[in-house]
């Protein structure tokens, strides 16, 4: 049986080669329906994002406690590229005051939590 990962790889290849036609989407939709996996669309999208990293395309989400300046955003992007070897970045920025400070960067496979919130949580855990 075809796995969701295999479908994601197929879809990522099609997207990367520019053959993202309606036909491909219909195929994927049919597969999801046939295998009763329509509720796994989010996972499939994430799997596609992960598959795209093989082509150097990274879908990144950056969350910070305050709105980042353009310069900082640029610096963050350069750092991510250096670290992951990405050629193309698709960055989504968001603000979450609960982080108190610092940033959280999520790639399709990993996460860097450099927020003050998580540091405080670690301190509290250590005290316990």
């Amino acid at each position: 049986m075809t796995s969701r990962t295999q479908v994601a790889d197929y879809l990522a290849d099609k997207i990367f080669t520019g053959t993202n036609s309606k036909k491909v989407m219909n195929e994927v939709a049919a597969w999801l329906q046939a295998h009763n996996k329509t509720r796994q669309v989010d996972y499939l999208v994430n799997d596609v994002a992960r598959a795209l990293t093989k082509h150097g395309y990274y879908c990144i989400s950056v969350t910070s406690a305050r709105e980042l300046s353009v310069a900082t955003k640029k610096q963050v992007e350069i750092s991510i590229k250096e670290m992951t070897g990405a050629t193309t970045l698709e960055c989504t920025y968001s603000v979450d005051h609960e982080l108190i400070g610092g940033i959280v960067i999520k790639t399709p496979e990993a996460e860097l939590d450099a927020s003050i919130q998580s540091r405080l949580a670690k301190i509290i855990e250590g005290v316990k």
């Binding site: 980042l68 963050v76 750092s79 250096e82 670290m83 400070g101 610092g102 960067i105 860097l112 450099a114």
Partner: peptide, 12 residues
């Protein structure tokens, strides 16, 4: 904090 985080990114 953000600078630290960026440095953290570099270290990986």
């Amino acid at each position: 904090e953000i600078d630290d985080a960026i440095n953290g990114l570099k270290d990986g």
